[in-house]
Every structure is written in C-alpha cells, then in structure tokens.
Design a protein around this nucleic acid. Sequence first.
DNA 1: TGAATGACTAATTTGTCCATTTGGTCACTT
DNA 2: AAGTGACCAAATGGACAAATTAGTCATTCA
Lengths: 190, 190
Amino acid sequence: MSIDRKQLILEAASKSFTMFGYKATTMDQVAKLANVGKGTIYTFFKNKEELFDEIIKGLVREMKVAAEESYDESKSFYENVHRSLMRVLEFRKEHQLTIKLFQEEKEMGTPAVTEVIGTLEKVVITFIKDRVVQAIERGDITDCDPELTAFVMLKLYIALIFDWEKNHKPLEKEQILSLFQKYIFDGLSR
Amino acid sequence: MSIDRKQLILEAASKSFTMFGYKATTMDQVAKLANVGKGTIYTFFKNKEELFDEIIKGLVREMKVAAEESYDESKSFYENVHRSLMRVLEFRKEHQLTIKLFQEEKEMGTPAVTEVIGTLEKVVITFIKDRVVQAIERGDITDCDPELTAFVMLKLYIALIFDWEKNHKPLEKEQILSLFQKYIFDGLSR
DNA sequence: TGAATGACTAATTTGTCCATTTGGTCACTT
DNA sequence: AAGTGACCAAATGGACAAATTAGTCATTCA
C-alpha cells in the first residue's frame, strides 16, 4: 500500500497556511511540499477553499474532542473551563494556525478567512454556551445570558491571546488562566 | 466680530468624518459644509491630518472632563465606573464618530485612523489604569495588574459596543452597565 | 486499468499607464 | 489683514497588459 496522499496534502497545506496564510499559499507550493502532483490534490479536494475548510473542520474536531475529554461532570464549571482552556492552549500547531488566520483576517480581510473565522467563532460560542447552560442549571454559576456569557469569554480569550501581544510581552498559559478566574469568575469586588 | 470660522470648520469636519469617515471626506467638502473658502482651513490647520487630530484631541478632552466630573471620591470604584461609563455612553455625537472610525480602521485600515485609534486606546487605558491603582490602594477591589485590568475593561467595552452588534441587536446602556457589574466586579461564581 | 501527474488553459492577481480627483498653495479680492 | 478659489503637484482610481495561480485533462506508468 502506498503512503496516504490525502494526509500528506492536508499536512503540507496546513503547514503552509500556518506559515504564509491562506492567500499566500499556492496550490503548486502545497503540491511540492506534499511531494505529489498538483492534479492529485484535486482528486481529494474540489478546490483550494474546500481543502482549507477540511483543515479547519479537522481542527474544530480535534479541539472539540480535546475539550470534551478534559470535561469532567463531577468537577465545577470553573474547574472544567480551566482544564479545557489549558488543553486548547497546548495545541501549539492548531493554535499557531488560528493566530495566523486572525492576523490575515485583520490585515488583509481575505474573504475565505473571514468566513472561516466567523464559523469558527460560532462553533466555539455554541460549545461554551451549552456548558454555561449546564453550569447555570447545576447552580455552579449565577444566572446569566448564556450566549452573551460565551461571547464575553471568547472575546476575553482573544483579547488576551492576540491583542495584548501587540503592545506587551505575551502572557503565559498560567497567567491567562488566572486572569479568567479573576475577571470572569471571582470578580474584582471585595 | 465675525463668526468663529475655526469652530465652523471643526464642526463641519467632525460632522463629515462622522458621516463618511476620514478618507472619504474631502477638504472641499469640509469647506463647503463650513461655508468658508478652502484656503481658510489651511490658516487654522497645517493639513488634513492635523485637522483630524485636533478633533480627536477635543473629543478626548471632553470625554476626560466628563469622566472626571462624574468621578466622586466618596463613592466606590464600581459606582464611579458605572457613572463614567454612563456619561461616556451619553455622548452620542462623539460616540458616533468613534464608531465610524473603528469601522474604517477595520475595513479599510486608513493609516491616519489606525494611528488615532492607537493613541485613543492608550489615553483611555492610562486613564482607567490610574483609577484602578487608586481603587486598589483604597481597597475597593482585589489586587490586580492595573494595566491589564484597564486593558480588559476597554476590550470588554469595545466587544459589547461594536462586536456584539455584528450578529445581535444592540445592547441598551443599562444592559452594558449590568454586564460590567456581572463579569468584571461580581464574577460568575456562587 | 486506474491512480498519479504536470503541461496546458482559464481565471485571478499584479503592474503600468493615463485620466480624474484631491490636498495644499498663493496671487488676488474685499 | 483676513478670506478666497483658481491653480498645481501629488495621490487615487480605472482600463488595459503582463504575470501568476487555480483548476483541467490527455498522457504516463505501476
């Protein structure tokens, strides 16, 4: 049996997207990186955008699995957020790709990237929202709008990961976690 | 004494920036709107960018005065944040301008606008930071990194004002205030 | 014989003019 | 002396050409 060409292509494309972004990676380049003919790519993927979407779908799937694995019914909501966040932050490769995509979205506005980020955010918010609903039912957290809460958590995460680095040195994983605790869970009041 | 032409120009430009953004307002247009000759503008302002900067300086000054007026030493930090936020949200005209600028920054990346927003954020963060330092000293809030806290507060504000509207109906002033209370001050924990 | 390929084509992007617009000046008016 | 708008140089936008890139398909070869 020959090597799995589809996998080779996915990995090559993923690497290229991470390094150069969506717009700047050419299909020729992906073919070269994957050591396959360009035509081969098109036997597995209808076009560039579908190749991109499949990579994102894979990323979402892995993230979801990771977040679900780290979920423990018996632990508190905060504990679970902590563990999920930790797991997500440890996905260096996937994380790097999303960072690159956020960059490209911000400074070039590539439509395919904008779209992907939109769905990515929707998926994440839906995921968090469901957990928030459970947490409210269980009485882990105070009553709140689950969608809005998920939205705020995601925005806080993005702000700490992407925006803070623009003018300051990056935050450590542990810092990000403790900031989540401080701002979202405990609050600043005495 | 004739009418204050400088003021006329500032108001006309401000109005035009608010309606069409920085790039799309022409100096001819501003002259027409202000009912002055184009040359007159250049007797008061070196160029378009300086005219823009003066408008922003004015906006910052007014905001600062408003925030300072609404500050009351005898009240708690949260109470003061509440009052300042309320005042800022009531500046319809200035608020409209900043919204337009944020839009232009996001979808066209006009350099002059990017720069202005950068300094605007710096000013706001410095302002909040100072208040946070005081609040910590007074024991109003738990110990925290003042800069990071100011950053988080600003980002939360921007997320609620600008980003939430992309996919949901705008939040009311009262909602925004209560969300600040919920997420930043009280926390979600029970 | 069918999976893989890369030369080929169509479509998109980039680069280069030129026409138009716009920021900025200044001789002239009031 | 303050104010102006015709004027000029610089920036911008649009039309067209050149170059790059996405996507196809006849050919190869295992």
